[in-house]
Structure formats: structure tokens, C-alpha cells
């Protein structure tokens, strides 16, 4: 069994307007030392997945089913108290906006010390020294002075470094980063991505990076999982997804983003329509209302949810089109327009 394994995870929230199926049957596996990128737009269920792994999806009301295996332990059926003891120690999380994710009334040091001492019975002085060490490791200058600063006294990049230091305080084996660089400037983003890469190698932890930015994923991820409407619609190695994508939604994402590494295209190729609301996920293939190739499925796309099937060597696709159709479309229709000047 892999270090982290999700089997048919479902997280549903009953609301006044209906059942929100944020995550609807998600399975994947991740080994130590590897990085998984989860890509999706707002409402795709990517953030709820990560909160679900940590047991942080909103308690009482959410219905969670399926299995989450972390290092041989099943977490969905474990007691909340047991999951709590793993949180921060065995698995830790880095959030998007470090300004709102850190408590404004406590110093950065106090917040790291707190994270360390909850799992390690050490005195304040020892924990403080540990915090200073960590701040130095993530590249904060003069850590012995900055440890007593408040989050608002840090710049955005420094705050994200401090956030990373906090997440690393107990040497977690699984690190989940939810949009870790979205709130940052590009030059700072590059620094943080480098830092995360280096730290992962150093700690040999499993890393899940959740983002809407395909560029960020391409920089870090070994494997990529594309989510849409609460389900995985394509999964594969980074080169599978970027060089041989087979799902129309993945094509759409690639066609939507202007790229600096190619000649400027005349027009972007957006996906029509908007991401679905998770209350009313379209029947059949959730993507069908926006899919240009839906007519080629003889109406199957509107009625039946396609299965997530392996196309080649661990590359999984959830689409009614046949493998040959998909490859034909990619090679002949999509790829040329993406690369045309």
C-alpha cells in the first residue's frame, strides 16, 4: 500500500438548497518523496479534498465516506481525537493567504512554538530555539529577531516562509499546500516554489500541491490530478498531462492560458460557459454542457457518468470518447492550434 491512499472518497454537505457533492468518489495514491498536483477551478472540490484528508472539513454536517489510508492507518473511521494528534505532526498544511491564515494577535514565534509544543513535550525555551532554527531554514534573515514579529510586520513572501516553517515544525511526512503562491508576486512565487522543492527533498515528505495554475504544477509535480465537479477527470504523470492530455477539459485549460514559452497566439481558446455549481452538477459527464465534443458521444455524455479508465501506463481519463478519438483530436485539432504562432 502506498504512503497515502484515497479510495472512493466522498464528502457531501447537506444545505438548504440541496446536497453539495464537493468530492464525489475520489481515489489516488501518493508515495513519500513524490509530489502530486491537484488542478481545478473554483468549486472543483480540490480544497475540500485536502481539508478532508486532514479531517478539517466542517465537522457535524458533512457526510464523509470512503477510505483515507495514511501510512497504513485509515483516517475516515478513526476517532477525531486520533486524527487531531496526527494533524500538524504527521500531516501538515500550508494555506493560500498567509496574512489571514496566521493569527494577527500572536507573534510568528508564538504560533510556531504552539504548533511544536502541542506534539512535543518540551519547554518554551527549547521550542523557541526550534522556531528560530526553522525560520532560518526557510530563509528568513535574522530569525532570532524576526521570531518576535507579528505577521503583519512581515512582507507577503516572508509570511509565506513563516507559514511553511510552521507547517514543517514537526517534520510532517505529508505536506499539503493549498494555492501556496497565489497571493504572491511572481519573483517571490519563484522563491517559494524553489524553497518547497528543496525542503521536500530534504524531508523526503509526500507533497500535495493544490492550485489552479498549471504553470506552478508543471514546476513541481510528478503526477497531476485534474478535478472537475468534485471528480477526477484526468490523472497522469506531468508529461502525460502536458504532452498527451486526453480530456477535453484539460485541453480547455491548456488553451485558456496565454503562455510565455510559446509564440503569442492570436486568440485564446477558452472553454465556453462557467464551472458548474456543486449543488446541480450536470447529469452524466459533469463537463458535457461545456464540451465541444459532446455531440460525438451519441448522447451518452448527458446520461451516463463516464468511468475513469486507464489509457496507458497509469494515465487515467474519464471520458466517453474512445482512446483513438481523443488522441486524434489532440494531435490534429488541439495541439496545432496551441502551438501555432
Amino acid at each position: 500500500m502506498s504512503f497515502l491512499e484515497l479510495k472512493d472518497l466522498r464528502i457531501h454537505f447537506p444545505t438548504d438548497d440541496g446536497l453539495v457533492k464537493s468530492v464525489d468518489g475520489l481515489s489516488f495514491a501518493l508515495e513519500r518523496g513524490k509530489t502530486l498536483g491537484i488542478v481545478g477551478e473554483s468549486g472543483s472540490g480540490k480544497s475540500v479534498t485536502s481539508l478532508g484528508i486532514l479531517g478539517l472539513h466542517k465537522g457535524g454536517r458533512a457526510k464523509i465516506s470512503g477510505e483515507i489510508w495514511l501510512d497504513g492507518e485509515e483516517l475516515v473511521s478513526a476517532t477525531p481525537e486520533h486524527v487531531r494528534t496526527l494533524r500538524g505532526k504527521k500531516m501538515a498544511m500550508i494555506f493560500q493567504d498567509p496574512l489571514s491564515a496566521m493569527h494577527p494577535y500572536y507573534t510568528v514565534g508564538q504560533q510556531i512554538v504552539e504548533a511544536y509544543r502541542i506534539h512535543h513535550p518540551v519547554g518554551k525555551a527549547v521550542a523557541r530555539k526550534h522556531a528560530i532554527d526553522l525560520l532560518g531554514r526557510v530563509g528568513i534573515p535574522q530569525p532570532d529577531r524576526r521570531v518576535d514579529s507579528y505577521p503583519h510586520e512581515f512582507s507577503g513572501g516572508m509570511r509565506q516562509r513563516a507559514m511553511i516553517a510552521m507547517a514543517l515544525s514537526c517534520d510532517p511526512e505529508l505536506l499539503i499546500a493549498d494555492e501556496p503562491t497565489t497571493a504572491l508576486d511572481v519573483t517571490v512565487q519563484a522563491q517559494i516554489l524553489d524553497l518547497m522543492r528543496d525542503l521536500q527533498q530534504e524531508f523526503d515528505s509526500a507533497l500535495i500541491i493544490i492550485t489552479h495554475d498549471l504553470g506552478v504544477v508543471a514546476e513541481l509535480a510528478d503526477d497531476i490530478l485534474v478535478m472537475y465537479g468534485g471528480r477526477c477527470i484526468e490523472y497522469g504523470s506531468a508529461s502525460d498531462i502536458f504532452e498527451r492530455p486526453e480530456h477535453p477539459y484539460t485541453w480547455g485549460l491548456l488553451g485558456s492560458m496565454p503562455r510565455l514559452d510559446r509564440e503569442r497566439t492570436d486568440r485564446l481558446m477558452p472553454i465556453k460557459g462557467t464551472p458548474p455549481s456543486l449543488i446541480n452538477v450536470p447529469s452524466g459527464c459533469a463537463f458535457h454542457p461545456r464540451c465541444a465534443y459532446e455531440p460525438r458521444t451519441d448522447g451518452k455524455a448527458t446520461t451516463k457518468v463516464p468511468d475513469l479508465l486507464e489509457t496507458e501506463g497509469g494515465h487515467l481519463v474519464r471520458c466517453h470518447l474512445s482512446k483513438d478519438e481523443r488522441r486524434g483530436i489532440w494531435e490534429n485539432e488541439i495541439k496545432p492550434t496551441l502551438e501555432s504562432a
Binding site: 478539517l56 487531531r84 494555506f95 496566521m102 493569527h103 504552539e114 504548533a115 502541542i118 506534539h119
Partner: peptide, 26 residues
């Protein structure tokens, strides 16, 4: 509902500490 409460929980703090030290303080 603040992000920092989610962070506090993600650190593995007990609910009591989350509520009183982080929530009530704010």
C-alpha cells in the same frame, strides 16, 4: 470562520485551545 482558526486546527491544537486561545481572543 477565519482562516487562522483553520490554521490552528491544522496544527493539531485541541478544540478547547482553538476556541479560547484563538477564537475568543479575536
Amino acid at each position: 470562520n477565519e482562516d487562522y482558526i483553520r490554521t490552528a486546527r491544522a496544527k493539531g491544537l485541541t478544540e478547547r485551545v482553538v476556541v479560547f486561545k484563538h477564537g475568543l481572543r479575536g
